[in-house]
Design a protein around this nucleic acid. Structure first.
Lengths: 168, 168
DNA sequence: AGACCACTGGACGGATTGTCCAATGGAAAT
DNA sequence: ATTTCCATTGGACAATCCGTCCAGTGGTCT
């Protein structure tokens, strides 16, 4: 039910060079094309790989400001608040977290000033008791999954950060 | 610099059905193939579309628990802490946020018990003064970008929840 | 008017895809 | 040890798509 090394290497390859097709992948991995196709089908049908949708950069769309808002919800208003937040385009994701009816959402805005507008729209809804916002300044580690895939597949982590002489 | 309606529709189409090729997309959108190719090239070179990497589900890899941890960093230890967190596979993303040397990171773990191990590894590093963790219970709005793309492209939002008048 | 640019519709060869097949290998079960 | 099961291999096939040219058209800006 997990992923083995070949799966791991395949996912890694696809992540690094999404353009490679099944045929090219089979050459890179040193296995038959049919094997790669079978693995890919299995990875997708088993849900490990959800899909290959385009990764859009909010900043390039004109929304360079990202922020995380913690919302305190009034008891019993959860459903309504979720529905409300789902209608706000600037809300990129929403989680319910441990705590007294708390939620955490990721927001984007055109500018710091615009963020105020977004927040007003987000919290301008009955059921939201309080909100605290944290603006993102830097993103040292962008959303990634490869290191986890490698670990799950039993592939040793790449010598990226480790200082000393790397490739030689 | 932005995206127009055609760009928006193209991105939306690619997000809904990643399998469609350039040719099929041109048919769906009602434009010439060359146009789609030109738009795609522009969207990618301009950075709006970063790529088409596989979307991997951590849960399917055996990491069904997600959590957000807010870390308070000791002055001047930022770089070291970042390097440290970057080596932890379970750290899916890391942000520096407003506040006194605060950071916010997304973690995953094999179980609630395993989360303790992950947190210990994360905070087990000089420079991290304090950490508070919030476990994700539900994810009402999974990471999405289409609504924002539609807004940026000037496409009216889909009539999903609100059947009649918008927000009134 | 002229220049510029995006889009169109078409063409080309090369490459890839989805889908079959039989044969091989190893591992688990009997 | 023998059988069974399954993943992998290497090959084949037609159909399709890709990357890349091209000339013609329409709209827009100078």
């Amino acid at each position: 039910m997990g992923v083995d090394r070949l799966d791991g290497r395949l996912i890694q390859l696809l992540a690094e060079e999404p353009r490679v097709g099944v045929l090219e992948a089979s050459r890179r991995l040193g296995v038959a094309r049919g094997t790669v196709q079978a693995r890919l089908d299995r990875l997708q049908s088993s849900g490990v790989i959800r899909g290959f949708g385009p990764e859009v950069d909010p900043a390039a769309l004109g929304y360079p400001v990202t922020a995380f808002a913690t919302l305190e919800i009034k008891q019993g208003q959860g459903q309504d608040v979720r529905a409300h937040l789902a209608t706000v385009p600037e809300v990129l994701e929403l989680h319910t977290i441990t705590g007294h009816g708390d939620m955490l959402c990721r927001l984007v805005a055109r500018s710091n000033a615009d963020l105020q507008r977004v927040i007003d729209r987000v919290v301008g809804f009955a059921g939201i008791v309080r909100a605290s916002t944290a603006i993102v300044m830097e993103n040292p580690v962008p959303l990634r999954i490869i290191p986890l895939v490698r670990q799950a597949a039993g592939i040793s982590q790449p010598p990226e950060a480790p200082p000393a002489g790397d490739d030689r």
